[in-house]
């Protein structure tokens, strides 16, 4: 009997692989590949899912040979981060550390050294995990996702990109090209903390990103708070942000922000933590992240 047997739930023998050299080539390849064509960036999620049977790619479209997707550009306008730039290249970049310390920390927290040699922010976003480390940071930095597809390019805010666990706004044939983040304003800084039971090699039980802007007197002019792993997607917590805005980030304001995070969190019980535990830690990390971000912002005024 031949191996390919449509209609039975047997895994097909093998996939195909192509590595387009331009966005246009990739669009074409995905158009022809059907629903089981999958884009391959770092592969650190996709290849694990393929191995464990969660996904069954028939066509891998490797996006690492497209110059646009491998570019990391920082200018006065902000950051253009190609979707396939590996994590290690990002956190080794001194400008990234200086301008977006929270996002850079989040990137540095993805997996082991080996994983960081491959994993990408684009993949972290497109995998759609509620626990993705970089997504809370992208939310507080008001990142814009630039998407390519057969209909052309479109731009979606990072806060709208993920729609549920494993689900994104990407339509069949579309893929993420780059992420754009505005340049930080004067007195602004960000921070990201996550909790894991070990010191490394875990998926976030909770992640908390804070971005805030302090005026010259140390008063918080603007703030944004986002949580990961406490809801079907990473969430912006308006209540926590408003608790910080207008304050000098005193303990009382931090506690109010923490309480808002506790209330906003809608976590589940799973193997990585209980719902109540996650709420508690969301509050703690929100406060700690805000403290870190404030410390950095003070240094920029």
């Amino acid at each position: 009997m031949p191996l390919e047997n449509e209609g039975e739930d047997w895994r097909m023998l093998d996939a195909q692989y192509i590595s387009p050299r331009s966005v246009a080539e990739a669009v074409e390849a995905l158009k022809g590949g059907g629903k089981d064509a999958m884009v391959l960036a770092g592969g650190t999620d996709l290849l694990v899912q393929a191995r464990t049977g969660l996904r069954d790619p028939r066509l891998y479209v490797d996006l690492k040979r497209i110059p646009d997707l491998m570019a990391l550009d920082i200018s006065s306008k902000g950051l253009h981060l190609g979707a396939s730039v590996p994590a290690a290249q990002i956190f080794e970049n001194e400008d990234m550390k200086a301008l977006y310390p929270g996002l850079t920390e989040a990137v540095d927290l993805i997996g082991s050294t080996q994983i960081q040699g491959r994993a990408t922010v684009g993949g972290n976003l497109c995998n759609g995990s509620p626990a993705a480390d970089t997504v809370p940071s992208l939310l507080v930095l008001e990142a814009i996702c630039v998407i390519a597809g057969s209909e052309g390019e479109r731009r979606v805010p990072a806060s709208e990109f993920t729609t549920g666990p494993g689900e994104t706004v990407l339509r069949p044939g579309e893929f993420l090209v780059r992420i754009e983040i505005p340049a930080p304003s004067k007195g602004a800084a960000d921070a990201y903390l996550r909790f894991i039971p070990r010191t490394e090699m875990d998926i976030a039980v909770v992640g908390a990103a804070v971005s805030l802007t302090l005026d010259s007197s140390g008063c918080c002019e603007a703030a944004s708070v986002a949580l990961g792993a406490v809801a079907p997607t990473a969430i912006l917590v308006e209540g926590a942000a408003s608790a910080l805005i207008g304050s000098t980030l005193d303990e009382a304001a931090l506690e109010r922000a923490g309480s808002a995070a506790y209330e906003a969190a809608q976590p589940i019980d799973d193997k990585r933590g209980t719902a109540e535990y996650r709420r508690r830690v969301a509050s703690v990390l929100t406060q700690r992240s805000a403290r870190m971000a404030a410390e950095r912002a003070r240094g920029r005024n």
């Binding site: 039971p197 070990r198 010191t199 490394e200 090699m201 875990d202 998926i203 193997k271 990585r272």
Partner: peptide, 9 residues
């Protein structure tokens, strides 16, 4: 990943 044996750090 989820059976958490100690890592070096």
């Amino acid at each position: 990943l989820d059976y958490r044996m100690p890592v070096a750090s």
